[in-house]
């Protein structure tokens, strides 16, 4: 379970202080599918970064499966991140110099997974995402949908408990977007917790619960049945 208590995030530059998050209390249960919505600049991505252990809150507590991670160093966070959280980005963020196979393999390399097991798991993930036939292609040679499927394969290859998706369909057409959302739903049905930031009400419809942010605060929460 993930739980935040009075989460604050303030960005300070030389001249201005911007409060991106202002007292966020939320709880995400194992196996839940949560969508975070809100207008641009409301703090969605900041929240997602903190939930994904890419950033620390300025104040408040973040309980990540029973550990307070809010004061951890980047090094400690990196250790927890790998294997526990998978990321899916709007702009895919595949490494251009690596092939599909090599991109998917990357998290396992950092986890020091033995070569044989690595091969099996990468192939399983690629098969699941229907990308095996493209395994030796480079990202530039793929369509947007294929790139995002690769990115999802990379996110799931280490079988993390949680996947964070930041506008995963933002750069895709509706057909490919639909396909990606179906994949996420399948993962969720398999037991993976999914937290997704989106602008699209349609995509949000896939979630169990929608959290609406405005000016760094939760304004409404809606639970689907």
């Amino acid at each position: 379970m993930l739980r935040t208590t009075n989460l604050q995030k303030v960005f300070t530059t030389e001249e201005v202080e911007t409060t991106a998050l202002n007292g966020i209390d939320m709880e995400i249960k194992d196996g839940e599918f949560v969508a975070i919505m809100g207008p641009s600049g409301c703090g969605k991505s900041t929240l997602l970064n903190i939930l994904g252990l890419l950033d620390n809150p300025s104040e408040g507590v973040y309980d990540f499966y029973g550990t307070d991670v809010s004061k951890m160093s980047e090094r400690q966070r990196a250790q927890i991140r790998k294997g526990n959280i998978g990321f899916v980005f709007q702009s895919f963020n595949l490494i251009d110099e690596l092939t599909v196979y090599e991109n998917v393999e990357l998290p396992l390399l950092y986890l020091k997974t033995p070569p044989n097991e690595r091969k099996d798991r990468v192939e399983a993930a690629l098969t699941r995402m229907n990308m095996m036939h493209r395994r030796n292609h480079f990202p530039q040679q793929l369509s947007g949908g294929q790139q995002q499927r690769t990115a999802i394969a990379r996110a799931v290859v280490a079988t993390p408990k949680t996947i964070l998706a930041d506008e995963p369909t933002g750069n895709l057409d509706s057909k490919n977007g639909e396909e990606v959302m179906n994949l996420l739903r399948q993962l969720n049905e398999g037991g993976t917790t999914i937290i997704m930031v989106t602008h699209s009400p349609y995509d949000a419809g896939f979630a169990h619960r929608i959290v609406n942010l405005f000016d760094g605060k939760i304004v409404t929460e809606k639970v689907h049945v």
Binding site: R75, R81, N93, I95, E97, L106, L111
Partner: peptide, 16 residues
């Protein structure tokens, strides 16, 4: 930079 970012997200340590 993007490569570095991705690698870090995937759990690469600064020393690596």
């Amino acid at each position: 930079a993007q490569e570095v970012g991705v690698r870090k997200v995937m759990g690469a340590l600064p020393t690596q």
